[in-house]
Every structure is written in structure tokens, then in C-alpha cells.
């Protein structure tokens, strides 16, 4: 009996003493969450507005761009029977809008399917090539002693220090002389290996203890067997990170593609195609069409991120770089 009451008072004592501390901790947590919510909103609102505006009729985009609550009827027509546009009031109120599919219908009248397939082709081909070449080069630089090992590494690293724009003109001229301008090969060969990937793989391979390879060597494995059977399987996390970076980077690549295949509309990727939707003079921008294209271009990457989120984060921690 006594022990129970004693422990009870003790408990009460502790509780009273820590009440203020709990209060501070709770309010701190609330503050943190509030801040996080605010930042999350700041990050999400542009996406929400992109999606909302891609579903509006043009007059509504112009006059009520901030409205983001959809309301029935869905799939309204933006025009009268004669083809005249309906006023903003007809398809929206001050707080809600009637979703219309005009933007999506129109964006498919452009070559969206071609751009999409091209983008997938570039992204897959370049990612595969980068996995092969970057890991091979990274391994050689990390493990094999050959004359000029360090020089080669610094040359490769050096290319990362040169601003990309400086290389645009020489790259264009070389591709033109090789007859690779406006070809798929021109894009894929040029971007099929990159210094960043080599660097990433080299750093990773160096973190693997050499004893493992020595053990394999004792078992009679040559370099390639060792690389293929022992080292590569261990490098899966780095390879995944590299694959994700390459895929994402290639998917969104605008500048290189503009230089290499800018002259041939049938080889454009999504970013190049979307730029074309801006019209020749920029004044004629059809906002709903343009944003519908942007949404379609974003979906695959968003899905990729959703399913491989863990690897994205791991990848960032490997390199200390931002994706």
C-alpha cells in the first residue's frame, strides 16, 4: 500500500516538474509542423495551379488563374456552336471552375505522341549506356593501376568544371562534321557517358574493401569476372542512383537536344516540343494547352519518383549533391 502511494506521489512529482518541459516540447513540435506545412504548401501550390489551369478554358485562365476548386459539370465545352469562345463567367465562378478538356484535346493535336516516344527512347538509351560506360570507367580509375591513371581522372573531372554552355558551339560543329546533327545517334552518343557518373562510380568502388577482390583473385577470377560477378552486384545502390539521375536529367534535357536535333521536329523530345507550343512570338500562348502538355510531361517522372523515392534520397546522400 505504502509503496504504491509512494510511487504515485513520486510520479505526480515528476509529472508536475516536467509539465512545463512537455509544454515547451509540444509547442515546439506544433511550430515545426506549422512551418513544414507552410513550406509544403509553397512547394505544392504551383503544381496544383498547373493542373487546375490545364483544365480551364482560356478566358478563365486569363481572368481567374488563382481559382483551383473544380466543380460540376465536368468536361464542359469552352465554345458556342459557332466556335466563339464562352466568357469566363460561363465556365467558372469566383471560387470554382468547371473542368474542360480543351487543353488536353488540343495538345494531342500537336505531335505530343512523337515527342513522348522520343523522350522515352533518349532517356532509356542514354541511361543504359551511362550505366555501362560510367561503371567501367569508374572501376578502372578506382582499381587498376595504369600509366596516366590520375591524369585521366583529372581530365574527366576537369570537364565537370567547364560550364556546359561553353561546349555548345564546339559540340555543334563536331557533330555537324560527323554528319550526326539532327539524328538520334547524335544525341545518344554525345550524352552516353558523363563525367559526373564516372566520378560517382569511382567514389563508390573505392569504398569497397580491396580484400574482397583479392579473395576473388585467389579463386582464379580475372578482372572482368571480378567486375561482373563481384563488384557490380555490390554496386547496385550506386547504379540505381546513377540510373535515376541519368533518366531524370535526360527526360528534362532541353539545351543539348535543342543544339543537336533542334532542326528536325520529328526528333524533338517533350521539353523541346513544349517550347514549340509557346508559339513563334510568345503572345499567342494557349495557356491551357501548354499547361496540359506540362502535366503530361511531368507524370512519368512523378511516378518514377513516387516508386523509387527511397533510392532518390539514397542517391543524394551518396554524392552529397542535389538531384
Amino acid at each position: 500500500m505504502t509503496t504504491t502511494s509512494q510511487s504515485k506521489t513520486e510520479k505526480q512529482y515528476i509529472e508536475t516538474a516536467s509539465l512545463s518541459r512537455t509544454f515547451i516540447r509540444r509547442s515546439f513540435a506544433t511550430l515545426t509542423v506549422t512551418l513544414l506545412v507552410v513550406f509544403a504548401l509553397v512547394q505544392t501550390v504551383p503544381f496544383a495551379l498547373t493542373i487546375a489551369n490545364s483544365l480551364k478554358c482560356r478566358p478563365v485562365v486569363q481572368q481567374r488563374p488563382q481559382v483551383f476548386i473544380p466543380s460540376p459539370p465536368f468536361g464542359v465545352d469552352c465554345r458556342t456552336e459557332t466556335g466563339a469562345a464562352l466568357p469566363a463567367e460561363a465556365t467558372s465562378t469566383l471560387f470554382t471552375f468547371n473542368p474542360a478538356l480543351e487543353g488536353y484535346q488540343r495538345v494531342f493535336e500537336y505531335n505530343l505522341d512523337v515527342w513522348f516516344l522520343n523522350t522515352v527512347y533518349y532517356a532509356v538509351a542514354i541511361t543504359v549506356l551511362r550505366l555501362i560506360f560510367d561503371s567501367l570507367a569508374g572501376y578502372a580509375l578506382a582499381r587498376i593501376r595504369f600509366p596516366g591513371n590520375r591524369v585521366f581522372f583529372f581530365i574527366i573531372l576537369g570537364t565537370m568544371m567547364i560550364p556546359g554552355v561553353v561546349l555548345l558551339v564546339p559540340r555543334f560543329i563536331i557533330l555537324q562534321q560527323l554528319g550526326l546533327l539532327n539524328t538520334y545517334q547524335g544525341v545518344i552518343l554525345t550524352l552516353g557517358a558523363d563525367a559526373f557518373g564516372v566520378f560517382l562510380m569511382k567514389q563508390f568502388f573505392e569504398s569497397i574493401p580491396p580484400e574482397i577482390e583479392e579473395a576473388a583473385m585467389v579463386d582464379g577470377a580475372n578482372r572482368f569476372v571480378m567486375f561482373g560477378r563481384v563488384i557490380l552486384p555490390m554496386a547496385t545502390p550506386a547504379l540505381t542512383a546513377l540510373a535515376i539521375f541519368s533518366f531524370q536529367g535526360t527526360w528534362n534535357n532541353f539545351m543539348d537536344l535543342l543544339i543537336i536535333v533542334g532542326g528536325d521536329a520529328s526528333k524533338h523530345n517533350l521539353p523541346l516540343g513544349l517550347a514549340q507550343l509557346r508559339g513563334q512570338f510568345g503572345d499567342t500562348l494557349e495557356w491551357n494547352t501548354f499547361l496540359a502538355g506540362a502535366v503530361i510531361a511531368t507524370i512519368p517522372l512523378a511516378l518514377l519518383f513516387f516508386f523509387f523515392q527511397r533510392y532518390f534520397v539514397e542517391g543524394i546522400s551518396y554524392t552529397g549533391l542535389k538531384g
Binding site: L129, G179, Q185, G186, V225, L232
Partner: peptide, 26 residues
């Protein structure tokens, strides 16, 4: 060995589709 074969196959494939481009351009 599987990886080695895969790598060489891909390299050959890549060279194959690069060379016609050089010829076709002319």
C-alpha cells in the same frame, strides 16, 4: 561472363547504329 557478353553486345549494337548515320549523311 554473362555481364561481359552483355556489355560487348551492347557496345557492338551501339557502334552498328552509329556507323550507318555517318554513311547516310552523305
Amino acid at each position: 561472363m554473362k555481364h561481359l557478353r552483355l556489355i560487348s553486345l551492347l557496345t557492338i549494337f551501339m557502334l552498328l547504329f552509329a556507323v550507318p548515320a555517318l554513311v547516310a549523311a552523305d
